[in-house]
Design a protein around this nucleic acid. Structure first.
Lengths: 141, 141
DNA sequence: GCTTGCTCCTGTAGCCACTACAGGAACTAA
DNA sequence: TTAGTTCCTGTAGTGGCTACAGGAGCAAGC
């Protein structure tokens, strides 16, 4: 059994974040030592590592909780996982597209923008009335 | 002069968000009608629209505040703007790269994952001990 | 004049996923 | 014993909003 510091090292999850996950019920409450300190089994540490890896892949906590409950009831969970992963992939692709469009917009805006000019054409464009209302939508941030 | 509803329509900024911007000191406090309602000039609405466009471009509020103060003192602000825009572009590029790597990782993980399999190889990989610790870094989320 | 329905007001709490701190208790090593 | 480290709980802050409660103002129709 390991203290929270070791669990943090081995899982790559910040100590404060581990306690946060516990408070939120994302991972089960670990046992305690006589002095009241958390003690983690290697199984519990594996769970923490799992959560971190999923977070690194960009999954939200709510999805990760589904994953965790699927790993518990280990029969034919793969279909649901695949669906969730594919939805997440779609979101990632959408974000990449958005950012790419953003990059283009920003590039073309700042390209006219040279040092020493009196009035900045980029700020000017952004302050103008009917500029770029078609492309710069309310698409999710 | 326009009420907050009209200002919201014309600027594309949510009413609640306009009040939030005012509270935070991002835009100046507008005048009030006899009944205590906010009244916006078209100049103030232009500022709101400017903030929204910058937000659409992904700039954080802190940078937008710098932009706004640069538009006030309209002499040779372009150099600073360009630098901020370029830094922001770097961040966007980094995000795109990160997401692209994420997409690859997720694709290769879920590719082995077929419907009906008993134990999901994706969840398995993520739960294993020494998997992918080199590439899945703590890079900023 | 009165009602209906819309817009607006303030203030506060919630969202996500943490992160940071204060003030104290419990271990460990010399 | 003492010093230093790790841990504990509880609370508040981050960014950028969004949502709601409970009330007030205002315009149009009867």
């Amino acid at each position: 059994m390991f203290t929270i510091g070791k669990a943090s090292e081995q899982s790559g999850v910040n100590i404060e974040t581990i306690r946060y996950y516990e408070r939120m019920g994302i991972v089960p409450k670990p046992g305690r030592s006589a002095g009241g300190r958390r003690l983690y089994s290697s199984n519990e540490i594996a769970k923490l590592r799992f959560v971190r890896r999923c977070r690194d892949l960009g999954f939200p906590i709510s999805i990760i909780q589904t994953f965790l409950s699927l790993t518990e009831q280990d029969d034919r969970s793969c279909g649901e996982v695949k669906t969730l992963a594919e939805n997440h992939l779609d979101e990632i692709n959408a974000k990449i597209e958005n950012l790419t469009r953003l990059r283009e917009a920003l590039l073309s805006l700042s390209s006219n923008c040279d040092e020493g000019t009196a009035a900045c054409p980029m700020l000017d464009s952004l302050m103008q009335d009917g500029f770029g209302e078609d492309r710069a939508g309310q698409s999710g941030h």
